[in-house]
Design a protein around this nucleic acid. Structure first.
Length: 596
RNA sequence: GCGCCCGUAGCUCAACUGGAUAGAGCACCUGCCUUCUAAGCUGGUGGUUGCAGGUUCGAGUCCUGCCGGGCGCGCCA
């Protein structure tokens, strides 16, 4: 059963067509004026222009055809030609009943599923994740879950940055700092490259820690900006690493392992998971053949010592730089591995759509890579999509930094939020008689809900201010509010079960019940919008509205004390709300505890 | 310099792709716990949507020009 909005749209579509007007004009939307109507149709206004007739006249004719519909209690014309629809209580009751009985809580399935890859543009394997990495993980995860839920076949790929200049830079810095490492690298490099390099171990590298990496990388990156010789050496090392010189390669492998473990820990804490734990290095073997192919196709040209693909077009408004495939040092670049990854995926997964969930600032980069991929025949137009998001700034409007001037690590953010959650749980007297382990689990879920919802409630495209107080806020439009509402329903349903109160047929009567059912009905619309615009904030917004509608219903309508038939109806509404709310939150990557 | 994005309540953000009276949260006033979890609910204050034009029945949304901010522009990712 489709939602009320779509059902009514179909009726309005038919009404417009019967009048010889385009059916699309019959699009039904939620009313802007809830005091006047539940839904509205605005199509009479644009229709008037085409038909050369007054809008109210057309609206009147459409309304006449809609009026007999048993789902509608009232059809009225308002203002210049709006058609206001008020749904009957019986139709709302039936819809609530259907949602309650539906394991998908009223959400539909795609008619034509696609094969989709969500590329999280994973963090660099050179430094720990900080809050700046938050968005791609959270948004990417939400998109992955949404797409999968609607019926697409989806692969989430971490796509770690583990094969570029930053690795050469870090290797150089480590050798500079620790003579033992420098020696080990030299000795290994001096020996002949063994055929089975993967089985080699280099004990000297075992002592390298994440803390060391974390400390050295920013220094090295800064120095490379001003010191040309230093930069050139790092680029040389990068090229040699990619050529698998044993010393560099084995040190790289150790770094990859160490940082990978930290990344897994961070992603796990956030409830983010990947189907493919791939990195740039994984497509390295494809590069030589790819370069040859680009050459054969006449796309590759020599320029300033590098080998590039020109992607600029005549009608470009700006001068788009070329894709640098092979640097003048002979190494693969960011764009090289991206292109090779597109080729790899085209051969393995054969996706209909690849969503790159990456910072908006990289828009030009992706435009260049996508054009190159199309020129090479690795992708069709529209198959690759860059879903950009804004940057996260501090309260001062500049890129976020801690008070000490450093970046805030993701683990620390989660930890801080969890501590705040513990405090607030105590203050509110929630979960006091629960075992320690469950209490901790709840605090963790509250923290993740707070962090994720604070991010996902914003439209991805705009930058927003990272405010630690906002991420640890538990009142108002926050993740914890939503958990609280869901848990309240669970508690209610538990109590009902104890009293052996059963759910039964829905009979909508109270205004709060009407509003709740209309909120439930809007689920599919929210999912469709989030899907089409790659915008999880539509789901977050829906979850918030639903929770709020329930809270009002909860305050206005006693449930367990009501007479049996009313009680049964309200229990069904509560169940439907819980299943849809929990589902919506799960799509955002937020887990609801049993109690709190 | 060229290009992209943004400017909405004191603060942080929405606004179903051009529709009615621009909505939430926080903050600030107001009332509600002998009824199912008060992290809640109720009512209220708060706006010339940066400025000036234009397009049309109708503009926060589209166009033009200013003002202000962010970002990107070849071997970092």
């Amino acid at each position: 059963m489709s939602d009320l909005k779509r059902g009514l749209s179909e009726a309005a579509f038919a009404a417009f067509e019967a009048l010889g007007l385009p059916g699309e004009l019959g699009r039904v939307t939620a009313s802007d004026r809830p005091d006047l109507a539940d839904f509205q149709v605005n199509g009479a206004l644009p229709a008037a222009k085409r038909a050369g007739r007054p809008p109210r006249e057309i609206a009147g004719q459409v309304a006449e055809r809609l009026a007999p519909d048993p789902r509608l209690a009232a059809v009225e014309i308002a203002g210049p030609g709006f058609i206001n629809l008020r749904v009957s209580d019986a139709a709302l009751s039936a819809r609530a009943q259907a949602i309650a009985a539906d394991p998908r809580a009223g959400a539909e399935r795609l008619a034509r599923p696609r094969r989709v890859i969500v590329d999280y543009a994973g963090p660099n394997v050179a430094k720990e994740m900080h809050v700046g990495h938050l968005r791609s993980s959270i948004i990417g995860e939400a998109l992955k879950r949404l797409y999968r839920f609607r019926g697409d076949e989806v692969w989430g790929d971490a796509h770690f940055g583990d094969w570029g200049f930053q690795m050469g830079l870090l290797i150089g810095a480590l050798a500079d700092e620790d003579p033992a490492i420098a020696r080990a690298v030299e000795e290994l490099n001096a020996g002949r490259a063994p055929n089975d390099i993967d089985s080699l171990e280099a004990p000297a590298f075992q002592a390298v820690t994440l803390e060391q990496v974390d400390r050295l990388y920013p220094e090295a990156a800064a120095r490379a900006k001003s010191d040309e010789a230093y930069r050139d050496r790092a680029r040389r090392i990068t090229a040699e690493l990619q050529a698998k010189r044993p010393g560099y390669y084995l040190l790289w492998r150790h770094l990859a392992r160490v940082t990978r473990a930290a990344l897994e820990r961070d992603f796990h804490a956030l409830g983010v998971d990947f189907d493919l734990w791939k990195g740039e290095s994984d497509v390295d073997p494809l590069i030589p053949a790819m370069v040859g192919e680009l050459e054969e196709k006449g796309l590759l040209v020599e320029d300033q010592g590098a080998r590039i693909v020109r992607v600029a077009r005549e009608d470009d408004k700006r001068e788009l730089p070329p894709l640098i495939v092979v640097s003048s040092e002979g190494s693969a670049m960011y764009g090289t591995t991206d292109l090779a990854t597109i080729l790899d995926r085209a051969r393995s997964v054969r996706p209909d759509l690849v969503i790159y969930c990456v910072d908006q600032r990289q828009a030009d980069h992706f435009e260049i890579v996508f054009r190159a991929a199309e020129l090479a025949g690795y992708a069709r137009p529209g198959q690759l999509v860059h879903v950009g998001f804004g940057t996260m700034n501090g309260t001062d409007g500049k890129p976020f930094k801690t008070r000490a001037g450093g970046v805030l690590k993701l683990v620390d953010l989660i930890g801080m939020t969890r501590d705040r959650a513990r405090e607030r749980l105590h203050e509110a007297g929630l979960g006091e008689d629960l075992p320690e382990a469950e209490f901790d689990d709840i605090a963790g879920k509250v923290a993740v809900a707070a962090v994720k919802f604070a991010d996902l409630a914003n439209f991805r495209g705009t930058s927003y201010v990272f405010d630690i107080d906002r991420f640890t806020a538990f009142e108002g439009k926050t993740g914890p509010y939503l958990l609280y509402q869901a848990v309240r329903v669970k508690s209610l349903l538990r109590k009902a079960a104890e009293e052996q109160a059963e759910a039964g047929p829905v009979m909508v009567a109270d205004p709060a019940e009407r509003d709740l059912v209309l909120s439930l009905d809007a689920f599919e619309t929210a999912l469709a919008e989030a899907y089409e615009r790659y915008a999880p904030n539509a789901i977050a917004e829906h979850a918030w509205r639903l929770a709020q509608a329930f809270s009002k219903f909860y305050a206005a309508c006693p449930i367990l004390q009501a007479e049996p038939a009313v009680r049964a109806s309200r229990l069904t509404l509560a169940q439907a709300t819980l299943s849809q709310l929990e589902l919506a939150l799960s799509l955002l990557g937020i887990v609801v505890p049993e109690r709190m």
